[in-house]
């Protein structure tokens, strides 16, 4: 799917090849443990899930085949479409905000100061789990008692119902996850920045280019391959947002933060409709595959970097 383009590199590299070799046996040995784990704990459950999406299954009695019923129900289910919309909105906000912020932080870590403590600090939030991050912000952003709103009120501003207003809730959840992940993303980008030779910047400086100008015409283009890797990983992760919603809003108010994973979970374990939940999971999987594919094509297609 996406590996076809990356495969070119190892083949064209390597000047001293001893002619075509075939390492199939060795390769099999090397991937065997991973393959077992992959097959048993990921592929098999997924195949089973896809099968269950064509059944009526309440988890405890044997599944009954019901054809496309679940998919028909899905297409007609307004809550599903709303969940899809909410999820997309979340991903857009989360990824957009996070990527821009991470990029700025990374550039600053590169151009302003390269001290380790700074990188250490921005990575700290990543050490706690999503659950903990959600809990802490739930407490900080509480409408009445949270210190966030207490501060707002003390400077004369109106309190903001961060997690209980339909307009605020998705941006707030996006922010919580940005808080946890931005340092990590920034570090990945920072690492990418370090692969850009200083000489390029020096040349730019001699030409009298400003920082902003250098950022736009040197940093961004040369960083594209790493950005694309970071984006693929973060977008896929972002689509699967669950913990934060489960802890902080339970999908509310009304349906305004009912993201897909949360709706699926609720249908599967709260309402025992595992067949329908499976069908929606298949839809989510399909969306992820398509989006990743498009992303890969887009970022690869115009990658004209160092090399």
């Amino acid at each position: 799917m996406m590996a076809t383009t990356t495969s070119i590199e190892p083949v064209k590299a390597g000047p001293a090849r001893k002619g075509p070799r075939d390492d199939t046996r060795l390769a099999l040995l090397f991937i065997l443990p991973a393959l077992i784990g992959f097959g048993v704990f990921l592929v098999w459950p997924t195949l089973r899930g896809i099968y269950l999406s064509f059944t009526k299954f309440n988890l405890l009695t044997p599944p009954e085949f019901n054809g496309l019923d679940n998919y028909i129900r899905m297409v007609q289910d307004p809550v599903f479409w709303n969940a899809m919309k909410v999820t997309l909105y979340y991903v857009l906000l989360n990824i957009g905000f996070q990527t821009v912020l991470a990029l700025v932080i990374a550039v600053m870590m590169q151009r302003l100061t390269q001290r380790t403590w700074l990188r250490g600090i921005v990575l700290t939030p990543f050490l706690v789990s999503n659950v903990v991050a959600a809990m802490v912000f739930l407490w900080i952003l509480d409408y009445q008692l949270g210190i966030g709103n207490t501060i707002l009120a003390s400077v004369g501003l109106d309190r903001i119902p961060f997690l209980s207003d339909s307009a605020w809730v998705i941006p707030t959840i996006a922010f919580i996850n940005v808080w946890r992940h931005v340092g990590y993303t920034a570090l990945l980008i920072f690492a990418g920045l370090q692969t850009i030779p200083d000489s390029v910047y020096e040349a730019g400086r001699i030409d009298g280019a400003s920082e902003v100008r250098m950022f736009r015409s040197i940093t961004v283009p040369l960083l594209r391959p790493i950005l694309s890797l970071v984006l693929i990983i973060t977008v896929v992760g972002s689509f699967q947002v669950f913990d934060t919603v489960a802890i902080a809003t339970k999908g509310g108010p009304v349906d305004s933060s009912r993201v897909l994973q949360y709706y699926i979970y609720d249908v599967a374990f709260g309402r025992f409709q595992f067949g329908y939940a499976s069908a929606m999971s298949v839809a989510l999987l399909a969306v992820l595959v398509i989006i990743t594919f498009i992303q890969y094509r887009l970022t690869r297609a115009e990658s004209s970097d160092l090399a």
Binding site: Y143, L145, P161, S164, D165, V169, T249, K250, G252
Partner: peptide
């Protein structure tokens, strides 16, 4: 209001009286 009590993680009557 819904916002004031904390939405989905509403604090109960006990905490509202306490605070």
């Amino acid at each position: 209001s819904y916002e004031e009590i904390g939405g989905a993680n509403a604090i109960g009557t006990d905490k509202q009286i306490q605070s």
